[in-house]
Design a protein around this nucleic acid. Structure first.
Lengths: 205, 205
DNA sequence: GGGAATAAATAGATTCAGTACAACAATTAG
DNA sequence: CTAATTGTTGTACTGAATCTATTTATTCCC
């Protein structure tokens, strides 16, 4: 007898979560660089190849929650009213996404920043993930902005806003447990960026 | 007999430039991913190990000019007057750096974007390099800004400005030979970011 | 109940980036 | 000539990532 999964084929025996947990333990114990995929799979009780069934690379383990937040951001933007200031809507959607990052549900790499030995390679991998956020914002803005340079502006705003948000996240991570919620960090730095790109900002100067 | 180099030790037989040229050819011929370090060194006529004497990784080959522009940016900021609006000085320094990027002296990866097969790994490597620019700007701003959140703002401005500039560079690269100079792209997107962070911008709204 | 089809897990091998270390070669300084 | 210095090479190793084939567990359909 077997549990019905609703589809044919062998059911998954190892779960993504088991691998994540095994990896988290090992990363905290030995650091990211000194943990091998083989160690992770051994602790999770599966073969090494199975790892690549769930993750395409070792660094992906660190950014699972970040990837999830890309989808959250996408949904938040999809919910935005078709009218209204698109820049303000981006700001609101980013704040909403930031609220989803609590101390207990944040990328491991952020909560264990000090213990894991974060080098440039990991930072870069994180930023590469943040490109996904930028893509989502760019697509939204490209469909809303008009005028000269609209598509360049869409991409520039997206990358600038994501850069500012990344600064906020980095600072939030290093401020430790007593910090304020992430959203307050994000709002403080994202708002100025958005303000600078508001169409009427120039006329006020 | 030997040429005097002014210092002891065996003189360099292989040059960084020879490796760059061999790599450029192979990247254009076969794409980045399908080119191995061994192929590069074979074409340059040196051993594989010598490669790591000049570059710390394969991806570094793509960003040599970009790395050079980090130093250019650093110098431009060092030349800035100790008084004056620091944000404006960042804007000016970035424009000056952008003027150093001509069509014939730009990262290979930008001029051969279509032919080389750019994947996430390369994007990540490029972003890691751009982090160097952000660090330079952040350091400059941290020494100039005052008030609450000065250090968070310094980092946020740095990353936002670099993000906007990256958008400009990407667009410039894809616009092809008939485009305007890079600096005009950069100015268009960097200025709004800087404007949004100007201390008096809020009072005008 | 007995296949076919399907999906997951495993085994084994391979490629290649990056590191480490020792040996060797070419140069300068004294 | 000798010592110190610096660049180059050979050899070996670790580990990420890919590939292909095989086995195992399940559902679907007859």
């Amino acid at each position: 007898m077997a549990i019905s999964t609703g589809r044919a084929g062998r059911p998954r025996a190892s779960s993504q979560q088991m691998l994540e947990e095994a990896a988290s333990e090992l990363f905290v114990e030995n650091g990211y660089a000194k943990t091998t995929i083989e160690q992770i799979t051994r602790r999770a009780g599966v073969s090494r190849n199975t790892f690549f069934n769930y993750f395409s690379s070792k660094s992906e383990l660190l950014w699972v929650e970040l990837d999830a937040s890309i989808r959250a951001l996408d949904e938040a933007l999809a919910d935005a009213a078709p009218t209204g200031d698109p820049l303000e809507q981006v700001e609101i959607a980013l704040a909403a996404t930031a609220r989803g990052f609590t101390a207990d549900r944040a990328p491991l790499v952020l909560t264990q920043y000090d213990v894991m030995g974060i080098d440039d390679e990991l930072r870069a991998a994180g930023l590469a993930r943040a490109l996904g956020h930028a893509d989502v914002i760019e697509r939204f803005l490209a469909s809303r902005l008009t005028g000269v340079d609209a598509s360049l502006r869409a991409r520039a705003i997206a990358l600038a806003v994501v850069g500012a948000a990344a600064a906020a996240v980095g600072r939030w991570a290093s401020d430790g447990p007593a910090r304020q919620p992430l959203v307050s960090y994000v709002e403080r730095v994202v708002h100025p960026v958005v303000r600078g790109f508001e169409p009427d900002a120039g006329t006020l100067q």
